[in-house]
């Protein structure tokens, strides 16, 4: 459904600048910019930003595909390229059977949700009207727009608040309006850039279920970006990890955590504990310690330990050698979230 090969994107410092200064890209200034380009006024380019580098990916039809990575790693840039909103600097690819160089045609085949910015909602209209008018504007019949709107509102849990104007909605409700609008057209590809931001746990689970079940059942291919790796892990068929604009890995969640065989993760919360006095035991490979000195006075520990039956006890003894009590202990297999954070990530990226 989506094929990308060797995609790179450099934001040229020069594109929006004229001798290193910024331009307004609206109205007369846009005109002047083009004029300025024509007469080659653009002398020194600002520092270009390499947002993506050599990304090669294939996403099958009907797949739920996750994208993970730290802030500024190029996730949004990649999604925008898939949406035909941004032209890659290099590389080639196709989305829903349309080659990259036909962005108009791509845009007709994808729905794009970004929860950044105000995303073109009409503030004076109700949630329901915003969605339905979007359908009408996209050429749906009135009846179809109506049934689809109701369905979309139900999908995101907005039935109760559908007659509130956008200006009267709470933050989480507004995010769901944007989401509902993207469900309307049933395009072959749905691109969701951080769809669960601002949603309460119940609606978050509802949206995750929607992504996991409903959309694939409608035959849609879903690309979803989210920082909550634990949530993402439960809904994707495959995921990609980006860092610094490069694709570190892509695969099923199980494949992504492979390479971490032989370790377990030990999460602990202690109360009143100090610096461990004992020597760090060989079973413990990595220690991450977060002090929460505030009113709770707790310390959180996250240890990577060898997958051996004596590891837990050795680690526990070590942690408690500085005094205090363990109020919570959980030992588990590594998860996708562990791959995205801490030393494990560095290991995987090697």
């Amino acid at each position: 459904m989506i094929r990308l090969s060797g995609i790179g994107k450099t934001f040229p410092g020069a594109e929006l600048s004229l001798r290193g200064t910024k331009l307004v890209t609206q109205g007369p200034a846009l005109w002047v910019r083009n004029l300025a380009r024509a007469v080659r006024l653009t002398a020194s380019p600002g520092a270009p930003v390499r947002a993506l580098e050599d990304v090669t990916l294939n996403i099958a039809a009907g797949e739920v595909f996750g994208i993970l990575g730290p802030n500024g790693s190029g996730k949004t840039t990649l999604v925008k390229i898939m949406a035909g909103l941004l032209r890659p600097t290099e590389g080639a690819g196709a989305v829903a059977g349309v080659e990259m160089n036909h962005p108009q045609a791509i845009r007709r085949r994808v729905s794009y949700v970004s929860t950044t910015g105000w995303m073109g909602l009409e503030w004076a209209l109700t949630a329901e009207e915003n969605i339905r008018f979007f359908g009408l504007l996209s050429g749906m019949s009135g009846a179809l727009a109506k049934t689809r709107t109701d369905e979309a509102l139900r999908d995101v849990g907005l039935m109760q608040d559908r007659h509130k104007a956008v200006s009267e909605l709470s933050n989480g409700m507004r995010q769901r309006v944007i989401l509902a609008r993207a469900l309307l057209l049933r395009t072959p590809v749905v691109l969701l850039d951080e769809p669960t931001v601002g949603l309460d746990p119940i609606h978050r689970d509802q949206v995750l279920a929607l992504v996991r079940e409903t959309l694939p059942a409608r035959g849609q291919t879903v690309i979803v970006v989210d920082h909550q790796a634990d949530a993402l892990e439960t809904i994707v068929d495959r995921a990609a990890i980006l860092a610094g604009g490069r694709l570190l890995r892509a695969g099923t969640p199980a494949e992504l955590v492979s390479g971490l065989e032989g370790v377990r993760v030990l999460e602990m919360v202690t109360r009143g504990s100090g610096e461990p006095r004992a020597a760090i035991p060989p079973q413990v490979q990595e220690v991450e310690r977060i002090e929460r000195p505030g009113p709770l006075g707790l310390t959180q520990w996250r240890l990577t330990v060898a997958d051996r039956s004596d590891a837990l006890e050795a680690a526990l003894h070590w942690v408690l050698s500085g005094g205090g009590q363990a109020v919570q202990v959980a030992e588990r297999a590594p998860r996708l979230a562990d791959v995205v954070t801490g030393r494990l990530r560095r290991e995987v990226s090697r």
């Binding site: 004229l18 200064t21 910024k22 331009l23 307004v24 007369p28 200034a29 002047v32």
Partner: peptide, 10 residues
Amino acid sequence: WQSYRVNQVM
């Protein structure tokens, strides 16, 4: 005002 240099031209 200064950063929009084209603005100054305009």
